[in-house]
Design a binder for these strands. Structure first.
Lengths: 252, 252
DNA sequence: CATAACGTGAACAGTTTTGACCGATTTCAA
DNA sequence: TTGAAATCGGTCAAAACTGTTCACGTTATG
């Protein structure tokens, strides 16, 4: 194996796992720790990754883990299911607004086949398709809210007031019969603009969001066309939502 | 087997495997290491592949001249030097516009200590600081231009017309006494807006850009305050630029 | 047929890369 | 805070690799 190939492998392995120890990497490419250390120094200088004590971390991972890794990964299956189910609601060549959030991120993953036009303020979603070709992706401007990778601020709001889309795929912190709430006040204005810009509004909410109320009110139920959730959502609240003419899809 | 046929087989084999060692290639075509080495030298000159220590790598279409690749170690030392030197020109807490491009990406890496406010249309730069905290980062909106990770289009232009910054750190495809040129027409409008928005305009240009002319004219020399380049820049052109009251910094 | 031109493989001296070692530094837990 | 363990960068000899040179056989050319 050539040095070049080894570096390439190191980087793509790190792309997969986000973080790896020196020993791990060394075994992976069949070279000594010293060599791996040297390679990492070069690769870090090149920019794609950052060295840490005992290993290295990728800078812009294309994996789900981005900034969300700290949050609950045990509901991953449900979020995946929601993602798949929601993606089915979207037709080919439609324009889709994608909110920032872990759940809707999983929707974005399943949209490639539809060759959609995506508009988003989520950096992880943007990274998902920044290299590929089939998806046309518009990123709103804004200030990066650290760790979440969300673009916020007036620039972001403005971007969504100027456009029109077929569907908005939204996330939120909680839903009750009184309406939808979210945790970050900063996001409210942006989300309202997203919903105004879209002909159809879909909320992706896993079961933990049902009956919960976050700090900032976002909108009442009349604005919502469809909700996609997982099989553990409380049946009573689901039924009540359906009574109010909201299509509720339970993924499983 | 003729020499011509051998070269062809080398190239197509590399097309398959991306990387290969000299020994590997030599066995593959049934010629000595020396011969393969000579063949590779010729093929490299013809383009299409790149020799590396101990073997060769094909130039994948993905990493063509304009594609942004963090693992692009081509002229890395010089770009690093330029990055460091340019970062020194920027004071603490200044607002900095950062263009999209591999060279200026390396400037961004060295700005963290200055706790600057960065405004950029480059996705890789944004990813660099999306997790950290010390840098306030504003991303312009726009359509993602695939491969490069640049945000383009009216949304991007507009973002830069509304702001004001202390410095703009720019890149380009070529520079002559007649002015600066760039390869993508799409970028011109954005770059012009960036330069208008900034009190000081710095261009980061490695030596390969000197005397070269790309397709689209960007601006003439009067708009430029400072140029940062590497030690291999042609001295004559550097002197001529200085005569025109442009500060030229040679990093090394 | 003689000879020059060329491609090939091997040998060689210089350079780069590699793996191991070591003292200094950082991290982690007590 | 302190001490042990892990990890770091720097150094060095060995190994691998590089470009160059040279001898040898093959192929054009007068």
């Amino acid at each position: 194996m050539t040095a070049e190939e080894r570096k390439h492998r190191l980087e793509s392995y790190l792309q997969e796992v986000e973080f790896a120890s020196l020993e791990d990497l060394s075994k992976r490419v069949g070279a000594s720790i010293s060599t791996v250390r040297r390679d990492l120094t070069v690769l870090e200088a090149a920019g794609g990754l950052r060295r840490t004590h005992g290993g290295a971390r990728i800078i812009s991972p294309k994996s789900d883990e981005f900034a969300f890794s700290a949050r609950d990964t045990h509901q991953l299956d449900q979020k995946e299911a929601i993602g798949r189910a929601c993606a089915q609601l979207i037709g080919s060549n439609q324009s889709v607004i994608i909110d920032a959030g872990t759940t809707v991120y999983h929707v974005a993953k399943y949209l490639e086949d539809k060759s959609p036009q995506i508009v988003t303020n989520s950096l992880p979603v943007a990274n998902l398709y920044s290299a590929a070709g089939r998806v046309e992706l518009v990123l709103s401007g804004g200030v990066i809210y650290p760790r979440l990778g969300v673009l916020v601020g007036p620039l972001a709001v403005e971007a969504f007031t100027k456009i029109h889309a077929d569907v908005a795929v939204m996330s939120a912190g909680g839903i009750t019969l009184e309406g939808v709430t979210n945790s970050h006040g900063l996001l409210i204005d942006i989300q309202l603009a997203m919903m105004r810009a879209a002909a159809k509004v879909i909320f992706c909410l896993d079961h933990t969001k049902f009956g919960r109320r976050s700090v900032s009110p976002l909108c009442d139920l009349s604005r919502i066309h469809t909700i996609v959730t997982d099989s553990r959502a409380p049946t009573e609240l689901v039924a009540q939502l359906r009574e109010r003419n909201i299509e509720v899809i339970v993924a499983g």
